[in-house]
């Protein structure tokens, strides 16, 4: 049996498990107030308070030209080294595609197994995937 199968399994059973898999990954987060941030996820909790590193924030504003009545969309960008984001502003986060596209880097093998592993409750014996055959 390959080592990957006996490695400790942390399964994906609820949304926050997926956020946990994003730790140390570069993620995209959409915030209230027409803001978006991209950065490396260093910490999160159940409120979706976050700490992100190497952050780039984009603020989108719509301006109305008083004469032509035309709306124009502007974006402003800011870079920040390390940022705490309060969870009540978080609308959604995008999981990096690397977590569910094959072929997977070695360090993500366990993640891949667990993403496709059915919830524990429905099966008496754990279902194991042996990726070493491919």
């Amino acid at each position: 049996m390959a080592d990957t199968v006996t490695a400790p399994i942390t399964s994906v059973e609820e949304p926050l498990d997926l956020v946990r898999l994003c730790l140390d990954e570069h993620i995209y987060v959409k915030l209230r107030g027409d803001r978006e941030v991209r950065g490396r996820l260093h910490a999160f909790d159940q409120h979706l308070n976050l700490v992100l590193g190497d952050v780039e924030e984009t603020i989108t504003t719509v301006e109305l030209d008083p004469e032509t009545k035309e709306e124009s969309v502007h974006t402003t960008n800011r870079k920040m080294d390390m940022l705490f984001v309060r969870g009540d502003g978080v609308i959604l986060g995008l999981i990096p595609s690397i977590l569910y596209t094959a072929p997977l880097p070695k360090k993500l093998d366990n993640h891949a197994i667990n993403l496709f592993r059915p919830p524990r409750e429905r099966y008496e014996t754990p279902i194991l995937f042996d990726l070493s055959k491919d």
Binding site: L23, D24, R40, A43, G53, R86, G89
Partner: peptide, 21 residues
């Protein structure tokens, strides 16, 4: 609070990730 900008030198990111996990 919307954000708190933090001094990166004061933060051990590996330790923080472990704690979060």
């Amino acid at each position: 609070v919307r954000y708190v900008h933090l001094p990166p030198a004061a933060i051990d990111t590996a330790l923080l990730q472990d704690a979060a996990r």
